[in-house]
């Protein structure tokens, strides 16, 4: 029994250390978003002398404390517009990916024995291995021809395309876990196809749909390379690109403000994720290996 207790202690120690290691960037980011810059620019590790909300006020464009050198630029980063630029494409692309992949995912699960369907499935899988950066040139030229640079349409289209392949396999994995007999039984019992889909199939793969939506939403929210190429002004520029520019362009970085912005950018996806992580983790692991 003593050996067992030692084992438990080691386990908890491992749990603790690994969790701290993984989460320390999050914690420090959130913590230092409340710390004034003078305590961040320090060569010694000291507990901050004071805490301030100035960073958040700077991002949100609210009046900051009078002695803050950055008070003049409060609100100049267009946070609200950039946040909408992140949110709208993520939401639309997420929904679109779910709707499209219900069909292909179902077909891949149920008709996977068909040669055409199977090869299409492999084709989607291959996207995973294509260097994404290589595709930016054709996208840029393609959308420049249609005058769609700096336009939500081009961004959303590319987001949908980049999220489809994996999502198809994720949905297909969820569908293939539902016995075909169930669908057939429903049809025998007098359901028509539409009723069968709406009342039996969709509710049963709902966790899969949630997972696919979340996966696509998070990918779009976090996307950097695609908007870097396809959006050029604040009309479509999302938070990710805004943050990267702030860090490179400002002569002296306003760390508190930048951390506040980073925290505000991470919070929506993090909150969603906490509630829905089970679906996502289940979905991700199914797409990868089970098929």
């Amino acid at each position: 029994m003593k050996k067992d207790r030692l084992r438990r202690a080691i386990l908890y120690l491992c749990v603790f250390i690994s969790a701290i290691w993984v989460i320390h960037p999050f914690v420090l980011m959130a913590f230092y978003s409340f710390v004034p810059d003078k305590d961040i620019f320090s060569r010694t590790l000291v507990f901050p002398s004071s805490f301030t909300l100035d960073g958040y006020f700077w991002v949100l464009g609210l009046p900051m404390s009078p002695d803050n050198p950055f008070k003049g630029t409060s609100g100049s980063i267009n946070f609200y517009k950039a946040a909408m630029n992140s949110l709208i494409p993520a939401f639309i692309a997420g929904i679109a990916v779910v709707v499209i992949t219900i069909f292909s995912g179902y077909s891949l699960a149920r008709y996977g024995h068909n040669r055409v369907v199977r090869y299409l499935g492999i084709l989607y899988l291959a996207k995973q291995f294509l260097p994404w950066v290589l595709f930016m040139t054709p996208y840029y030229i393609m959308f420049a021809t249609f005058r769609l640079i700096d336009n939500f349409i081009s961004l959303i289209v590319v987001y949908i395309g980049s999220n489809l392949p994996w999502s198809v396999w994720m949905i297909s994995a969820f569908v293939s876990e539902i016995p075909v007999d169930l669908e057939e039984a429903a049809l025998v019992d007098g359901c028509n196809t539409r009723q069968m889909v709406l009342k039996i199939l969709l509710p049963m793969i709902a966790p899969g749909l949630v997972a696919v939506f979340l996966f696509a939403f998070t990918n779009v929210w976090n996307a950097y390379l695609i908007p870097l190429i396809l959006s050029s002004t604040i009309e479509t520029k999302p938070l990710a690109v805004l943050i990267a520019e702030l860090f490179t362009w400002y002569g002296r970085t306003y760390y508190s403000g930048l951390f506040a912005l980073c925290t505000l950018t991470t919070v929506p996806v993090a909150v969603m994720f906490v509630y829905l992580q089970k679906f996502l983790i289940r979905g991700l692991s199914r797409g990868a290996v089970k098929g």
Binding site: P25, T218, W221, N222, Y224, C262, V274, Q277
Partner: peptide, 28 residues
């Protein structure tokens, strides 16, 4: 624990880069 260990995936890469460029900064 499973949720925490999966969390880095959620952090936008841009945000991670900002945090790490500060955390690994030579001076502060």
């Amino acid at each position: 624990y499973r949720g925490i260990m999966f969390a880095p995936w959620v952090m936008p890469i841009v945000v991670a880069s900002v945090i790490w460029r500060w955390m690994l900064h030579p001076d502060w």
